[in-house]
């Protein structure tokens, strides 16, 4: 602390500390704690809040598992189904994203000359100047029944009738994969770039095939970057709202859409909070699993 003050001077140091504490306490910790508390309270009209009925209860979590009391089913199959569908799809999207981004990141870091690497980075970034909602709508236009992709495929004679990309959720998966591509590429790029190129040549000189060099040298070196990219992409995908709203098929629900409904349309903030806490918990578990799987520490991920 002392050295921090000495290094930055009193003014800047104080500013940093106030800004960070404000950010953590007021923008993250307090709202989340409030939501956590809210998730254990019944949904009451404003007048009754703080009254004798405002007690801690598991009713919202019970609702997630068992459904409403009037329902005929033993379990809340719809919500649980949406929840697991969201998590599993997010995991797949993360894996696809990793497979898609790893070659690009490796190419930028080790193969391309600096000039074309810069060009590639710029052309990856520029599309993200357009906001997420517009990008999703643009994809919807591409994937529509009479959209560009169908027209090209039919025009070239590859298919006879239009493919319903939206109903098959192909549009959704593409959109979700594309939405957070940068958050995968840059951690990978940073990690791979720091690998000594001589190691690649040494492996090759010792007779290693390209695949094995990646498996034994590049991937172990880049694992912190891989873990970091995967956790970010997973969290953001599982928590995405705009892309699923625009691109999902009518019978596919994303868990965030349920949360949104409880908060905004059903005006049940308590239940919305409970559902949010569930999503958050799974995301945290996923991060911990990734860290365990790749044997990395939290400090390495941030680096």
């Amino acid at each position: 602390m002392n050295t921090f003050y000495k290094k930055n001077g009193p003014l800047i140091s104080t500013y940093f500390i106030i800004a960070i504490v404000f950010w953590l306490v007021f923008l993250i910790i307090i709202p989340q704690l409030y939501m956590l508390d809210l998730s254990f309270r019944p949904n009451l009209p404003p007048l009754l809040r703080g009254g004798p009925d405002d007690v801690h209860t598991l009713v919202h979590y019970k609702h997630f598992i068992f459904g409403s009391e009037t329902s005929q089913d033993n379990y809340n199959y719809v919500d649980i189904g949406v929840f697991f569908n969201t998590i599993i799809t997010a995991i797949f999207v993360t894996i696809i994203n990793l497979c898609f981004c790893y070659p690009i990141a490796f190419y930028m870091a080790k193969v391309a000359n600096p000039k074309s690497a810069r060009l590639l980075i710029v052309s990856l970034i520029i599309p993200f100047w357009i906001n997420e909602l517009l990008r999703s709508f643009a994809l919807r236009i591409l994937f529509a029944g009479e959209g560009v992709i169908n027209n090209v495929l039919i025009g070239s004679g590859l298919i006879d009738s239009a493919i319903n990309f939206i109903a098959l959720d192909i549009a959704l998966y593409t959109g979700l994969t594309y939405a957070y591509i940068l958050l995968m590429i840059f951690p990978l790029y940073n990690a791979i770039e720091s690998l000594d190129t001589n190691q690649l040549e040494a492996a090759k000189d010792l007779g290693s095939s390209t695949l094995r060099t990646h498996w034994r040298i590049v991937i172990p070196h880049a694992k912190a970057g891989i873990a970091s990219g995967c956790t970010m992409v997973f969290m953001l995908t599982a928590g995405a709202l705009a892309t699923p709203v625009v691109l999902s098929s009518p019978n596919t629900y994303w868990f965030t859409q349920l949360i949104y409904q409880w908060f905004n349309m059903n005006d049940n903030w308590s239940r919305g909070s409970a559902y949010s806490i569930l999503l958050l918990s799974v995301s945290v578990v996923f991060v911990l699993l990734m860290m365990r799987l790749f044997k990395v520490k939290i400090g390495e991920i941030i680096r």
């Binding site: 001589n198 190691q199 040549e201 040494a202 000189d205 010792l206 007779g207 290693s208 095939s209 034994r216």
Partner: peptide
Amino acid sequence: GPNKRPTSLIFQNLALF
């Protein structure tokens, strides 16, 4: 290619893994 030649190279920085 280098992986098919009967040569082995020791790098300046050794490039141990």
